[in-house]
Amino acid sequence: MKKFWRRLNQNKGAVVGLVVLAIFILISILSPLLAPYDPHQIFDGKFNLPPLWSGGDNAHVMGTDDIGRDVLSRLIYGARISLTVGFLVVTISLVVGVSLGLLAGYFGGWVDQIIMRGVDILMALPSILLAIVIVAILGPSLQNGIIAVSIVYLPNYIRVVRGAAMAEKKKAYVDATKCFGATHWRQAVINILPNCMAPIIVLASLGFSEGILNVAALGFLGLGAQPPIPEWGVMLADAKAFIETSPWLVSLPGICILLVVLSFNLLGDGLRDALDPKLKGQ
């Protein structure tokens, strides 16, 4: 563990990613305290106010949107939404994906066959298309968008955990514990799973960025979160029409998405190098 932290610390990118994420997490926890206004509050007569640095109002540091809502407040609440989305996507896909992957890898046979055919089907469609299809079934909303993106990300976990479990199963310690009468449950969850943790952690970190990105994309297409929710993708969709007159409405939410996604990717790269020295330098 100590060695792991030291390795992670040496990776400047991962440290930067971690710091930026810590800031965003703080912002999202403290959003009611940090946001100057309610994200839904409409200021009459203050439409499309530019941000402070291009001659705006002191009262609205990052300007206002087309119906007079404070952009900074909306971005701050947006951080809360996006990080929650990322967390939920990772949790759902991790729990379900790891369980299925473990089942497939540990038991093999027909259990493996059924699960892997399901994976094949999910993988035959591009991820965002699959998410759109699932939303088409469930109806467009933030909640359904999260479910859709979680399902889309399942095959990654299933494949990685299955592969790792199959490799672990052949090792001597599994035979040894079998002789002591370990149950299937004990074998799979207590003996094998901890030894598959490294790739799972890396996938989870990358899953955060993928989840946030895809849910924002759904929001942008009008198939995820619905207005007036201050979700970054929805804010971008709203801003599309004002691209010529109010460029800050386009640039600010996008920069937020990019920063968060970039940080998770930096962290994911760092974690992979730190957890799996074999892959270092790749």
């Binding site: 990118g13 924002a216 993708g233 691209i243 386009v250 996008g254 998405i257 990019l258 970039l262 990717n265």
Partner: peptide, 22 residues
Amino acid sequence: ALLGYSMPIFWWALVLIMFFSV
């Protein structure tokens, strides 16, 4: 490359439109 890899392309498209078209 990492920046490109992390890019929300729907936003990237809008930025390029803003710059090159508008």
